[in-house]
């Protein structure tokens, strides 16, 4: 425990911020205590999720978009998530390679995270790290997901604005733009738009959006960019700001934050319920014996559970 850490964090010390993120990622007691004391200071930052297939140019796009927001004087944090090796648990996090322009800017903070076994494009602690950055006082937090394909809908839970990146030439367009991705995007970006087929991809997205039987209040725009040259970035930044204005005008942002807080409550309660139940079960003198009997097939797990943790709630909770 470093008693000074939180105080330094609150004074705006970036090294304390970085160290606290490590505590949160590692789930240390200090990390947990800090999350609790920081919680009330969260909810101010705008969060933007960026998702898309590998090779779509996500890092370059993040680099450019961040530079555009920097021109507005906004303080920025960027979280880049890359996969951990399922075999060794190690990871190579190389998104910074494409973010050269931001590396020396004192108002930009970039943190690379390994997915550490989580699926869905983020790591288990991405949401918590987002809160730490939010509490630190960043205006905008960009989250770049693992580019594993189309499975990263997780990002919606954490980010209030979701950008879905597509590129021409990644196989059959319709195949690449899978259902599920369409529902989460607040804006669609067709990057590498100087390659042939960009217009076709844009049209396909628009067509598929128009097929939605329940048109949402917000019509997601489709923006063409060439991130390596900065083309289309201003328009993308404008669309993101428009989405912010939309969220504010309709009080959607408050609703989103409210939902997040309730989800956090639910997570905490689940963890506590599980913990307190485990504690009670483990404390019983007959636990080892009953477990052995289940193992040998002498009694069934339901019966053992009824004896270890009597529970008179509804059936579907009692008998999963």
């Amino acid at each position: 425990m470093d008693p000074e850490l939180l105080a330094r964090f609150e004074r705006g010390d970036r090294r304390a911020l970085a160290r606290l993120i490590t505590h949160v990622e590692d789930g240390t007691p200090q990390g947990r205590a800090a999350l609790r004391s920081l919680y009330r200071a969260t909810g101010k930052a705008r969060s933007i999720g960026i998702t898309g297939p590998p090779g779509a140019g996500k890092s370059t796009l993040v680099d450019q978009l961040a530079a555009a927001f920097r021109k507005d004087g906004l303080k920025l944090a960027i979280i880049c998530v890359d996969p951990s090796s399922p075999f060794t648990g190690g990871a190579i996090l190389a998104d910074r390679v494409r973010m050269k322009h931001l590396q020396e800017d004192p108002d930009v903070f970039i943190r690379s995270m390994a997915s550490r076994g989580a699926l869905g494009g983020l790591s288990r602690t991405t949401g918590a790290v987002l809160k730490v950055l939010d509490a630190f006082g960043f205006d905008v937090i960009l989250i770049e997901t693992v580019g594993v394909g189309q499975g990263e809908v997780e990002v919606v839970r954490e980010a209030e604005t979701c950008l879905v990146i597509e590129v021409p030439g990644l196989g059959d367009g319709i195949q690449a733009i899978k259902a599920g991705i369409l529902e989460i995007g607040h804006a669609f970006v067709v990057n590498k738009a100087d390659n042939p087929g960009a217009d076709r991809v844009s049209e396909q997205i628009l067509t598929m959006l128009s097929l939605n039987p329940n048109p949402p209040e917000w019509q997601p725009p489709v923006v063409q960019t060439v991130a390596t040259r900065g083309t289309g970035i201003d328009e993308l930044a404008r669309q993101v700001r428009a989405h912010w204005a939309h969220l504010d005008a309709k009080s959607l942002r408050h609703r989103h934050l409210g939902q997040r807080r309730v989800a956090d409550l639910s997570d905490i309660l689940k963890a506590r319920a599980l913990g307190s139940a485990s504690q009670r079960v483990l404390a019983r003198p007959d636990f080892t014996e009953l477990r052995r009997q289940v193992e040998l097939g002498q009694i069934d797990p339901y019966e053992a559970a009824d004896r270890l943790l009597p529970f008179d709630g509804p059936d579907e909770w009692r008998l999963p």
Partner: peptide
């Protein structure tokens, strides 16, 4: 990486 570390390149 193969030894289980997280490498920022």
């Amino acid at each position: 990486r193969d030894s289980g570390m997280e490498v920022i390149y």
